[in-house]
Design a protein around this nucleic acid. Structure first.
Lengths: 214, 214
DNA sequence: TCATGTTTGTGAAATTAATAACAGAATCCT
DNA sequence: AGGATTCTGTTATTAATTTCACAAACATGA
């Protein structure tokens, strides 16, 4: 049992990721035990928020003591379902796709890119970071063969929907879409959009209108 | 006057970015006028939500008609403060930094990376995508010379705080932190974290526990 | 062993955000 | 021209999330 309560807010999931990051830092510094108060300060959130977020998944702390850093990291990872590796398929080997393939952090965090797909015949056969680029048409076979569960779309926007269709047809369970385009998926497929320009927009807005909105 | 109301929810800002994306698609398709209902469907949100989000900034529609696509794009861009270019400094020219320097979309969206900084003497002087890598110590001079307003941190996590200190000391107004580390900044500096692993965590969670939470 | 001090987990209160409902403004059709 | 229809802007309602406040659990030291 990893989930104690029925519905968990999206924002809670996002914060858990932050907690892991900060807790890992504490661990590196040699801190063994931390209170919700101290963790809250480091994460810039309210301490009740932390306790409530954790309460969705179980009781991980010790009253009068706090949380054991290593145990809490383990518990949160298990709660999120990242206490094991996830096999990923990357579709679209352009600039961004190549950068992700080269990004060591993926495997370190347990997201292993096991297949790189593209529909450009000039790219097929090329080897990037030890991985041979394969034709997108082979997705169904490869997804089954390598037990791929998460699809990562890094195509140009106009080809994002087609990439999604390939992935869905191949039986993938979730899609992370880096392409700047909305895509339609059946509702049993989990879909996440990644667009770091959102952050730039937010920054531009807040800098420009800092006086009226802060 | 770009802001009509006092406080604008963070979520509204994020949605405005989505609206621009979808509206641009409508424009490419040759659609001139769109109702909040149709836009809502394409963005997977409620139509009242759209009308309310827009109401924070002004009245952009015509009753009985809808919104003129091009006008609305322009209005939202002005509302967000992205109706002009923003000069950016990139600190940390590793894998990710290089990928961002090569990413055409930045300048197309009005965020111009005008300076690339690193503290590694082996990298200084190297030219990436037509931009010479400069020593981070030169940040104060360059920020003033080139009117840089937004700092982009792409260093390894352990050097993120130092990069932030350089940027703040140099008089930057906002920071986008791609490094997987929390950093401290004075509160007049706008700070945004970018961590696309959050999306992978969320996907892993939802896929794994799809039955209980959806 | 028992009083004192911490710190969690959690129900209640406050705040914030999302949705629904509808009056007002514009168009279209007869 | 005027009634029917459409669709925005805005107020009211509902839902969700965050914060507060405190009892229960554990630790410590006399």
């Amino acid at each position: 049992m990893a989930v104690k309560s029925e519905h968990i807010p999206k924002a809670t999931i996002a914060r858990l990721a932050t907690y892991i990051q900060v807790l890992s830092e504490f661990k590196r510094e040699g801190t063994d035990v931390v209170s919700s108060e101290r963790l809250a300060e480091a994460c810039s959130v309210n301490s009740s928020q932390i306790r409530k977020d954790l309460a969705y998944f179980g009781e991980f702390g010790v009253r009068g003591v706090g949380y054991y850093v290593q145990d809490l990291i383990t518990s949160i990872k298990r709660s999120l379902g990242i206490d094991r590796a996830w096999n990923c398929a990357l579709v679209g080997v352009g600039n961004l796709g190549r950068a992700l393939l080269r990004h060591r952090e993926f495997s370190r965090k347990g997201f292993i890119i096991r297949g790189a797909f593209d529909c450009d015949p000039y790219k097929i056969g090329e080897v990037v970071e030890g991985m041979e680029i394969v034709c997108s048409r082979q997705l169904p076979a490869k997804v089954k063969e390598l037990s791929l569960e998460i699809g990562v779309i890094t195509t140009p926007p106009e080809r994002a929907q087609r990439a999604a269709n390939y992935l869905i047809g191949a039986g993938i369970k979730g899609i992370i879409n880096f392409a700047p385009a909305r895509i339609a998926v059946p509702k049993h497929i989990h879909l996440e959009y990644v667009d770091f320009f959102h952050c730039f927009y937010a920054a531009a807005f807040h800098i420009r209108f800092a006086d009226t909105n802060d």
